[in-house]
């Protein structure tokens, strides 16, 4: 079985600072991995590098997506291959309706994969089904992307996209930030509905709370740009009790 996502001894710098100092992690189909760690441990950097955000320099190591070199691909190619990053802070795009954005993006991905384009009625049908399953009102689709959305609506919009694009690997970057407990539950339910034997998820979070709703198969603790401890879901509870301090010394 080929791993979906493999990071091998990944070293990344931003300007003159090395943020990741040799990170290794393998994600197989069907698995849910949680990456936890204190602020500044490199969690968000990892998600950005995987998605291809400009401004990060990979100085050593590699990232493989189904055995292919991910770092050679443009961000849009990565998306078309089946990689999805749910943003910690989804941006607002005034003047571009959610509907138009999603339709254009989905067709761009399909085109890159050599699949047929979805007509407006076909797309409408698909997006309506998905929106309904996530309790997203149609009205939201007509508004500018994330414009005037509450924190919860923005995160639900991320999950809507995840459901629509049907990626193989989902990276959820601090999905719980800015959400109250009800919004968190709705978002987590959306994510759980997408769990499948073919799909893997990497849940990046600072707090254990999210992991009560999205139960991971593996938990990794990051500190100072490395994975310093890996374990099962109980590791998250252990961390909640004892904090990150122990690992800061270990790193």
């Amino acid at each position: 079985m080929t791993a979906l996502l493999e990071m091998k001894d990944l070293k990344v710098r931003v300007e003159d600072n090395e943020i990741l100092h040799g990170l290794t992690l393998t994600v197989n189909p069907g698995e849910v991995h949680a990456i936890m760690g204190p602020n500044g441990s490199g969690k968000s950097t990892l998600s950005h590098v995987i998605a291809g955000k400009p401004g990060y320099e990979v100085t050593d190591g590699q990232i493989l997506f189904r055995g292919e070199d991910l770092l050679e691909m443009e961000p849009d190619e990565r998306a078309a291959k089946g990689l999805f990053l749910a943003f910690q802070y989804p941006v607002e795009i005034p003047g571009v309706t959610t509907w138009n954005f999603l339709h254009t993006a989905l067709n761009a991905q399909r085109k890159a994969r050599g699949e047929s384009q979805l007509s407006s009625p076909e797309f409408l049908k698909k997006v309506r089904e998905v929106a309904k399953s996530l309790n997203i009102p149609q009205d939201m689709l007509k508004r500018g992307v994330n414009v005037g959305f509450s924190g919860g609506e923005k995160k639900r919009n991320e999950i809507l996209q995840m459901a629509l694009f049907e990626p193989a690997v989902c990276i959820l970057d601090e999905m719980d930030s800015g959400l109250d407990i009800d919004a968190l539950r709705i978002a987590a339910d959306g994510v759980n509905a997408l769990r499948s034997p073919d799909r893997a998820m990497v849940v990046i979070t600072h707090y254990q709370r999210l992991l009560n709703y999205i139960i991971p198969d593996f938990v990794h603790v990051m500190s100072k740009g490395r994975v310093v401890k890996s374990g099962g879901k109980d590791l998250a509870l252990e961390l909640e009790a004892s904090g990150y301090t122990q690992f800061e010394d270990a790193a």
Partner: peptide
């Protein structure tokens, strides 16, 4: 970057903006 992460090639993302 957000738009490209959703699969839009650079020129198409620019075009929408």
């Amino acid at each position: 970057f957000y738009m490209r992460a959703r699969g839009l090639p650079e020129k198409e993302a620019q075009a929408l903006l």
